[in-house]
């Protein structure tokens, strides 16, 4: 199974533990990746301050055109912002002939053109629908038995299209967590937005959002939160200290990527495979006792 992996800007920096854990996990599942040569940023969620809609569509159409030209494999976007921008552009170009013509007339300035043949997928979509739960189960050598996980979905991975999961009651991430032997907990704030791209400039307001999400997860007995977006991961993890100061709370819960939990369950090294040491709130203190129960303390 060959794909383009469009990891985007964040996964090279603040979300590096996502990319690093994703690669060995997907390799183990038989997936092969290529990079879209000379890809550009998707525009994420705050570009509107400097650009209008057409510019952002063009930005994404360039990546789609490059992918089409370079082999046309499905594009996997692990970052929810990248995913939504790419898939949205793809939808709009496929559905709106006039827009497609307009965008192509602009792409032609760089000798590019996009015919609409490439598919855009979120990593969770591919894990669930291409790889499948059975295959994931087969690879589990260290089940995460009894680990209560809040599978946080956030916003941009299933909204607005609900391409691979319900827009209001998503369950795919939880199914994967179950396949790893973990126990996904139900918590109502599963899809409450974390503040996404405006977290830094609107920190005080957005800390309130994150506080609500984390308190909800903790109240429903989660010991760890799993995410599938670098923006969610950063916002949920990094500001817990500040939130405690501001609200006089005592929140501390590790935030990991789904792929990090997969790496652990697949028996990969906690450091060299799951890259847990790159997380600020150490997930080891929650994960290691679970592994010890199973007789594996590595």
């Amino acid at each position: 199974m060959k794909y383009f992996l469009y990891w985007g800007c964040s996964l090279e920096a603040s979300g590096a533990n996502y990319l690093k854990s994703l690669k060995p996990v997907c390799e183990l599942l038989g997936m092969e990746f290529e990079e879209i040569d000379d890809w550009n940023c998707c525009g994420a969620s705050v570009s509107y301050a400097g650009a209008r809609d057409l510019s952002i569509r063009v930005l994404n159409a360039r990546n789609l055109a490059l992918a089409e030209m370079q082999g046309g494999y499905d594009i996997i976007a692990p970052c929810s912002s990248c995913y939504i921008q790419l898939i949205r552009t793809n939808h709009e170009l496929r559905e709106d002939e006039k827009l497609k013509e307009k965008v192509n007339s602009i792409l032609r300035e760089a000798g590019l053109t996009y015919n609409g043949t490439v598919n855009v997928r979120h990593i969770v979509d591919v894990l669930y629908n291409d790889v499948g739960i059975d295959r994931i189960k087969q690879k589990v050598t260290r089940p995460l038995s009894g680990l209560k996980v809040a599978g946080y979905v956030g916003c941009q991975s299933v909204r607005p299209y609900g391409e691979y999961d319900s827009k209001e009651r998503p369950r795919v991430q939880d199914e994967i967590l179950k396949a790893l032997g973990a126990e996904p907990v139900k918590f109502p704030k599963k899809m409450q937005c974390c503040g996404s791209g405006i977290f830094l400039p609107e920190m005080e307001l957005c800390m309130g959002l994150v506080k609500d999400i984390l308190e909800d997860a903790i109240a429903h007995e989660a010991k760890i939160v799993s995410t599938v977006c670098p923006m969610c991961a950063m916002n949920l993890e990094l500001y817990q200290g500040r939130i405690n100061q501001l609200y006089n709370t005592n929140i501390q819960i590790p935030i990991v990527y789904l792929t990090q939990l997969m790496a652990v369950a697949f028996g990969l090294d906690l450091k060299e495979g799951a890259f847990l040491h790159m997380n600020y709130i150490p997930p080891e203190y929650v994960i290691k006792p679970i592994l010890m129960q199973g007789g594996d303390s590595k």
Binding site: C9, S10, A13, S14, N40, C41, G43, A44, V46, S47, Y48, A49, G50, A51, L59, G197, I198, L200, P201, E202
Partner: peptide, 27 residues
């Protein structure tokens, strides 16, 4: 909202300048 406007504008400038965003330069 000056902070949010500035952040968004700087974000777009990153893209226009390099085609990609450098988080530390943006901050």
């Amino acid at each position: 909202r000056k902070n949010t406007a500035t952040f968004g504008q700087e974000f777009w400038k990153q893209i226009y300048k390099r085609g990609r965003v450098d988080e530390k330069d943006l901050s």
